[in-house]
């Protein structure tokens, strides 16, 4: 352990800390002598038990940021802690919408560079791994200047494991007025409906791509996912085309998934898609093009038409 004091930006929702936050806390335990979670949103105190269980001994509760987008006010509050004498050696940020905003703003406030898209880290917390060119190469990087080291880590890079720790001590901080930079406000929230398991937590993911031919055919993917008790996913091509919501997108700019089984239907296997699903335990692909790159990562590849193979599979599963 080379680092004394490691902070984790812990995102929390109604259901508690996000799985990525718990993954970061788990890793923080191996790289730092002491782990502190930084949380906001008003409910931080309620989450002290879970944050403690995963390794945080202290939680800085930045309080409720209200309707402001969190990036600016959370970064201001964290900068104030550092300026007030706190000395984190490293801060782990989730590679999420708000996590990236906070990291970017804090890097300017502290004038420290950021290392992003981390998929692995040495146990001393000083070098990081990055997946390049669709996962065909791995780069190792490190900071050469002074800390705090700002690390932005991708989901599913580490497995979350409970440390069995007691509740973390909650330290309330005064959220400083972030001023005009915090002027962006959420006026309403829209939640897209979902049934079945969450995409990034499902044991089975069935994804569809442009090879489905039309938005209507995505129904095949949904049916199949339901029959296998899995979650439906998608390539960016059909998200951009408006066939399915972004929340379904798998890949570099979407979700990283590592299910037991990933079934790719009518997806070519572009590098940006592969980085999001290559870590799946088992991969099955259906594509009419024998040379589609998706076959190079598939345990079982079916060269065929999704409109023939999928309906037959659905029928067979229904009749079992």
């Amino acid at each position: 352990m080379a680092l004394d004091n490691v902070w984790v930006l812990a995102e929390t929702g109604e259901a508690g800390p996000t799985s990525l936050s718990l993954e970061l806390l788990t890793k923080a335990r191996t790289i730092g002598a002491s782990v502190t979670a930084v949380a906001w949103g008003g409910g931080a105190a309620e989450h002290a038990a879970v944050l403690g269980e995963y390794g945080a001994t202290k939680v800085y509760d930045l309080g409720d940021t209200g309707e402001a987008l969190p990036g600016a006010p959370v970064a201001s509050a964290m900068a104030a802690l550092v300026e007030g004498g706190e000395r984190p050696d490293a801060i782990l940020f989730p590679a999420s919408y708000d996590g990236r905003d906070v990291a970017g703003r804090l890097s300017v406030k502290l004038d420290r560079p950021v290392i992003t898209n981390i998929v692995g880290m040495s146990d001393d917390g000083l070098s990081t791994q990055h997946s390049l060119f669709g996962g065909s190469q791995t780069a190792t990087a490190r900071f050469t200047g002074e800390g705090p080291f700002l690390y932005v880590v991708r989901a599913k890079s580490f497995a979350a494991e409970s440390a069995g720790g007691g509740p973390a001590e909650v330290v309330q901080t005064a959220a400083p007025e972030a001023g005009p930079t915090a002027a962006a406000r959420v006026v309403s929230r829209h939640v897209e409906e979902r049934s079945g398991p969450k995409l990034d937590e499902a044991g089975v993911v069935v994804s569809g791509g442009r090879g489905l031919g039309s938005a209507d055919s995505y129904e095949l993917i949904e049916q199949l996912a339901k029959l296998l008790n899995g979650a439906p996913g998608a390539s960016r091509a059909i998200v951009d085309a408006g066939w399915v919501p972004y929340a379904r997108q798998v890949g570099q700019t979407g979700k990283t998934v590592k299910p037991n089984l990933y079934l790719a239907c009518g997806i070519s296997g572009a590098t940006q898609h592969l980085v999001g699903m290559k870590g799946s335990k088992h991969i099955v692909a259906v594509n009419k093009d024998q040379d589609a790159p998706i076959f190079s990562v598939a345990d079982l590849g079916i060269v065929g038409d999704v409109h023939k193979v999928l309906p037959a599979l659905i029928e067979a599963l229904k009749s079992r």
Binding site: L69, G104, R105, K109, V114, N117, T181, A183, T253
Partner: peptide
């Protein structure tokens, strides 16, 4: 694809984002 530039620019310019 670091995705940090937009927030960094905003902070440097003192703007919301």
């Amino acid at each position: 694809y670091t995705g940090t530039i937009p927030a960094q620019i905003a902070e440097l310019l003192g703007l919301p984002s």
